[in-house]
Nucleic acid binder design. Structure first.
Length: 466
RNA sequence: GGCGGCGUGGCCGAGUGGUUGAGGCAGGGGCCUGCAAAGCCCUUUACCCGGGUUCGAUUCCCGGCGCCGCCUCCA
């Protein structure tokens, strides 16, 4: 069974499923006010792999990830661009899904939008007021953090030390600086919804509580997001659930930062790096491989060099797929149940078991991947030694394990149709057959100049794109 | 000020109280190849510093140095 680090207990512990055989996950999605950056890509990939692995383990997985389509940043950005907030959000949501598709991230089973849940949020805020844990002041409704037992659990910091660090807030009417807004009363020009406290809009933290409980029910298995969401976002989600007396997430999982030049990547630091730029640069699978080569809780450094290294590793996997004519064992949208099918004679069961053991250990993708690369070497070595059956089985195992990680291998050589290239290849084969090697070399030079990789095999000249 | 993380070979990045230091990338040598490419084999004096615990620490403890993060919107 999968063991994962749980932020709430600061321990690696088994994912204790609410219902055996089924896993329910809620992962905080993006606020759609700008194009996604590398950090968004990482969290999406990390939880995509977690999800795929759970599916591969034979579990029935329900994966929910939201879209925050109304908040200060959306409104501000829309104002700058002179468009309606809703239109802006729709536009960046499209950008988001395009990037996710490029990365091979599976669509969530449910994608709740904050704007579609406002009425439910109003109900919840009303319930919190009724229970006496929330209070109304002139600019909105706030949750009283002091009324919540165990506030600070996720931050792993007691309430008083959190408060000691809090800066003076603009809203001085708050009872405590840590109290957070549940309902923001409308300011001119902002989108609004009706409520008992007048027109306004919900605070950020409420949507995830309402939507996760609505779609997954109480006591769902796992709540995830990037490390920066621990405090205050997840802390405040939990606070509301506790205040409501609802059983909330049983396991909290957070992934580490993407750093650029050693620093956290963020817009305010000016080192923001666009995910689209990276994806346009080369094979999107390289970023997945780069992300998976580090443990999900470690920071990863993204530089042209580390991306290049990932691309080289990917090329090694693809080369194996080419050598063994491995068709993609699955489409990107198709998680594969490798782990549970222990009777599959076409795979190296021991290698699969090692893979599972590593993945079960807090999603040790670097370890799992190292095993996959060992198999690559084994398969090639076996083939070199003439043990074709063993080699093919090992190679198939590579393809299947890579597929569990969401990395389809490109083993299919796309047919070359360019008559000029075909002519050069044919002339080169002829030259080699007649041992006119100077001519053959010249023809290879020409093919390389046209951007092809040239490989000679027993069956003649082969060309492919790099 | 409070809380937390990290410091491994040219680079990325796992991991462990003790014979043989994952894996990838890069470099070197070799095999194969007409030559290449790909592949395979071999290879390049790793664990920030100082104490401590221990028969033995890179791996545990303490201190120091350095880097990073959270405490405020943030993936």
């Amino acid at each position: 069974m999968l063991r994962l680090y749980d932020t709430a207990t600061a321990k690696v512990r088994p994912l204790a499923l609410r219902r055996p055989g089924a896993a329910s996950l809620y992962v905080c999605g993006p606020t759609v006010y700008d194009a996604p950056h590398l950090g968004h890509g990482r969290f999406a990939l990390v939880f995509d792999v977690l999800r795929r692995y759970l599916v591969a383990s034979g579990l029935e997985v329900t994966y929910v990830s939201n879209i925050t389509d109304v908040d200060d940043k959306v409104i501000e950005r829309a104002r700058q661009e002179g468009v309606e907030p809703g239109e802006l959000a729709r536009r960046y949501e499209e950008t988001w899904w395009a990037a996710m598709d490029a990365l091979g991230v599976l669509r969530p089973d449910h994608v709740p939008h904050a704007t579609a849940y406002v009425a439910r949020m109003v109900e919840v805020v009303g319930e919190l007021v009724q229970r006496g844990v929330a209070y109304e002041i002139p600019d909105g409704v706030y949750l009283s953090t002091e009324a919540v037992p165990g506030y600070g659990l996720l931050a792993r910091q007691p309430l008083d030390t959190l408060r000691a660090g809090a800066r003076v807030e603009a809203v001085e009417a708050k009872r405590s600086p840590l109290d957070f807004v549940l309902w923001k009363k409308a300011k001119p020009g902002e989108p609004t919804w009706p409520s008992p406290w007048g027109p306004g809009r919900p605070g950020w933290h409420t949507e995830c509580v309402v939507m996760s409980l609505d779609l997954l029910g109480e006591g769902f298995d796992l709540h995830g997001g990037a490390i920066d969401l621990i405090f205050p976002h997840h802390e405040n989600e939990r606070a509301q659930a506790v205040a409501l007396g609802r059983d909330f997430a049983h396991h909290w999982v957070h992934n580490g930062w993407v750093t650029v030049a050693g620093e956290k990547m963020s817009k305010s630091l000016g080192n923001f790096t666009s995910l689209d730029d990276l994806l346009a640069r080369g094979d999107p699978r390289a970023y997945r491989l780069l992300v998976l080569r580090a443990h999900y809780r470690s920071p990863i450094e993204v530089t042209p060099e580390t991306v290049g290294q990932a691309e080289a590793g990917l090329a090694r996997l693809d080369e194996l797929a080419r050598r063994f004519h491995l068709a993609d064992p699955l489409a990107v949208g198709d998680p594969v149940a490798v782990v549970g099918e222990a009777d599959d004679e076409d795979l190296d069961r021991e290698a699969v078991a090692r893979f599972v053991e590593r993945m079960d250990d807090d999603l040790d993708t670097p370890g799992a991947l190292s095993g996959v690369f060992e198999l690559v070497r084994e398969a090639n070595a076996a083939a070199d030694a003439g043990r074709a059956t063993d080699a093919a089985r090992t190679a198939r195992t590579v393809a299947h394990l890579a597929a569990v990680l969401g990395l389809p291998l490109r083993g299919v050589r796309s047919a070359v149709e360019d008559p000029e290239v075909l002519d050069l290849v044919a002339r080169r084969d002829a030259a080699r057959a007649e041992r006119r090697f100077a001519d053959a070399d010249a023809l290879r030079t020409e093919l390389v100049r046209l951007g092809w990789v040239v490989e000679d095999g027993p069956e003649g000249t082969r060309v492919r794109r790099p």
